[in-house]
Design a protein around this nucleic acid. Sequence first.
RNA 1: GCGGGUGUAGCUCAGUUGGUUAGAGCGCCAGAUUGUGAUUCUGGAUGUCGUCGGUUCGAAUCCGAUCACUCGCCCCA
Length: 414
Amino acid sequence: MPALQPARGTQDILPEAMRRHRAVIDTARIVAARYGYEEMATPIFEFTEVFARPIGEATDIVAKEMYTFADRGGEEITLRPEYTAGIVRAVISNGLTQNLPIKFFACGPMFRYERPQKGRFRQFHQIDVELIGAGTPEADVEMIALGADTLAELGVLGHCELQLNTLGDADSRQAYRAALVDYFSAHRHGLSEDSLRRLERNPLRILDSKDAGDVAVNAAAPSFDSYLTEAARDFFATVCRGLTALGVTYRLNPRLVRGLDYYCHTAFEFVTEQLGAQGTVLGGGRYDGLMKLMGGPDVPGIGWAAGVERLALLIAAPPVPPRPIAMIALGDAGEGKAMTVAHELRRAGFTVDQAYSGNLSRRMKRANKIAARAAVILGDDELARGSAAVRDLDTGEQIEVPLAQLKDRLAPFR
RNA sequence: GCGGGUGUAGCUCAGUUGGUUAGAGCGCCAGAUUGUGAUUCUGGAUGUCGUCGGUUCGAAUCCGAUCACUCGCCCCA
């Protein structure tokens, strides 16, 4: 309603923030490429059922956080709240399952109607990687190692702890879920209101509740361990061994669960304490049943997503952009000449800024403000001699150079 | 969706128990320097005191609502 401010939970990304944003995404893309992940993108909006079914009708994301609307043709459309479902849909749509495994890197904006908070927005950006068509634990190890490498390359791995858990296979989870429902139902008097609701929808979620009463009840809750099938236990053990072999340290967290229904087996999160309540910086897991659930072949998958804004808050200042050369024109003749000279310099690869207004003093001030490395001054005097004044803005040294030699003489300032 | 805190210039903030012309620093603009930037000096501009309503002779100050931000809950990257 108030006109001149961005919609709640959205934000303008101004140049300084954008450099951080870019640093995060570019670094992640490079690391993913080392692992053989290729960049791709899916639409920002999809038919609602692409997200509703796989994520889970009962999850908060689907039940109350999706930006869903009917378009002008009456189609039910949703702005993507996460990337995995869209990518899996794309794999099915394009028949990409002929040549497995496939490895994708993607990034872009996501949308969830949530209450904004530090590190939590209604429009936010994620980096996402998916490994589709590899069902062995080695794939899990690769995926987690890729996450750790990405954080390491960003210089934030030291501030993060990798938490690891298994959600087992379908049989394990069904048995465990039943056991949890029994246990929590018997202790429902000790549970918080939120958890009573979870008991209906997603009992596993009670395990990571922060409520003091819930924590007490959780202490004696049955552990997943005794409900894991032999196969699921072996799978997880292999993942853990693989991580250790690669020197990726982790902490087992039996309370770590996933909010989206399609996850199974390995679940992991890199968590930091430096961001307050929104501490998860990168999280993911295995989703073997997802593609089949969405109407495709029964192909396993695993992936993770990382929050760009959260990482951007953690990284050190990104490298500053290249310093420009300030083209300073004086008088009509100089203005005209400066245009063509600047054009030539840019085509030769120089970064050149022009201000187009103000006297010499004014333009020098601007040159200084934008951290220009050098100023090229074109006034009537210089033009008469077919030359330009070149001033080194760091040393204050100024020389006059013939226009024909300008590119060469500016070389030290690129 | 629920609870706590905050909201004064572009930015960071001050504004005493309600008292009439609302301040500082930084930044911005201009001049000293009519063809030379960073320092310095001098001068200048800028606010619907988040918004709406109420109490009062009088509100930036008190009350209510609302919006936004923020910290938790929830959710999650």
